[in-house]
Amino acid sequence: SFNTVDEWLEAIKMGQYKESFANAGFTSFDVVSQMMMEDILRVGVTLAGHQKKILNSIQVMRAQMN
């Protein structure tokens, strides 16, 4: 498990989005775990492969939080 959203993004090789997530207010796992595709688009993730990777990881995160 990760301590910060930045660490999580690095771990899934999506570190290039750290600033975008932070600027959009997605700075805690409570918020990130609620993200939908529209949120991912809003933070500027436009590549389908990256969207899928982030969404898949969020689903895993949700499962671990319950």
Rank of each mutant, 00 (worst) to 15 (best):
S1K: 14
S1A: 13
F2H: 08
F2L: 08
N3G: 12
N3T: 12
N3C: 11
T4A: 07
T4Q: 06
T4W: 07
T4L: 06
T4G: 07
T4D: 08
T4H: 06
V5F: 02
V5H: 01
V5D: 01
V5M: 03
D6K: 05
D6A: 11
D6I: 05
D6L: 05
E7T: 07
E7S: 09
E7W: 05
E7C: 07
W8R: 00
L9G: 00
L9F: 03
L9R: 00
E10R: 05
E10I: 10
E10T: 09
E10S: 08
A11F: 14
A11V: 08
A11E: 11
I12H: 04
I12P: 00
I12A: 03
I12G: 03
I12V: 04
K13E: 15
K13M: 14
M14Y: 03
M14E: 01
M14R: 01
M14S: 02
M14T: 01
G15A: 11
G15H: 08
Q16E: 10
Q16C: 08
Q16N: 06
Q16P: 04
Q16I: 11
Q16R: 12
Q16M: 13
Q16S: 06
Y17P: 01
Y17Q: 01
Y17V: 02
Y17E: 00
Y17M: 01
Y17G: 01
Y17A: 01
Y17W: 04
K18M: 07
K18E: 03
E19K: 13
E19Q: 13
S20M: 14
S20I: 08
F21I: 02
F21Q: 01
A22H: 12
A22W: 10
N23P: 02
N23E: 11
N23W: 08
N23A: 14
N23T: 12
N23R: 15
N23S: 12
A24T: 05
A24D: 04
A24Y: 12
A24N: 13
A24L: 09
G25I: 02
G25E: 04
G25M: 04
G25N: 05
G25V: 02
F26V: 09
F26L: 08
F26W: 09
F26G: 02
F26P: 00
F26K: 05
T27Y: 07
T27A: 07
T27K: 09
T27E: 05
T27G: 06
S28F: 04
S28M: 05
S28N: 12
F29P: 04
F29V: 06
F29E: 02
D30Q: 13
D30Y: 14
D30L: 13
V31Q: 11
V31L: 15
V31S: 13
V32G: 01
V32M: 03
V32E: 01
V32L: 05
V32Q: 00
V32N: 00
S33W: 09
S33C: 08
S33Y: 10
S33R: 11
S33F: 14
Q34P: 03
Q34R: 11
Q34Y: 09
Q34K: 13
Q34V: 09
Q34W: 06
M35D: 00
M36Q: 15
M36F: 08
M36A: 12
M37I: 10
M37L: 13
M37V: 10
E38Y: 09
E38T: 11
E38L: 07
E38S: 12
I40C: 05
I40H: 00
I40P: 01
I40W: 02
I40V: 09
I40K: 00
I40Q: 00
I40L: 15
L41S: 07
L41G: 05
L41H: 08
L41I: 15
L41Y: 10
R42C: 07
R42S: 10
R42I: 09
R42F: 09
V43L: 12
V43E: 00
V43F: 02
V43I: 13
V43R: 01
V43C: 13
V43M: 07
V43P: 01
V43K: 00
G44I: 02
G44C: 03
G44L: 02
G44D: 02
G44W: 03
V45F: 02
V45T: 02
V45R: 01
V45E: 01
V45A: 03
V45Q: 00
T46V: 13
T46I: 13
T46A: 08
L47W: 07
L47T: 12
L47C: 11
A48L: 13
A48I: 13
G49A: 15
G49R: 13
G49M: 14
H50T: 02
H50I: 03
H50R: 02
Q51E: 02
Q51M: 08
K52T: 11
K52N: 12
K52S: 11
K53L: 15
K53H: 15
K53D: 09
I54W: 01
I54Q: 00
I54P: 00
L55I: 08
L55C: 08
L55T: 04
L55V: 05
L55D: 03
N56R: 14
N56H: 14
N56A: 14
S57D: 08
S57L: 08
S57R: 05
S57E: 15
I58H: 00
I58L: 08
I58K: 01
I58V: 08
Q59Y: 12
V60T: 10
V60D: 10
V60H: 14
V60Y: 14
V60K: 12
M61A: 04
M61Q: 04
M61H: 04
M61D: 03
M61F: 06
M61T: 03
M61P: 01
R62Q: 07
R62D: 05
A63V: 09
A63F: 08
Q64F: 09
Q64K: 09
M65T: 07
M65N: 07
M65A: 07
M65P: 05
M65K: 05
N66T: 11
N66V: 12
N66E: 15
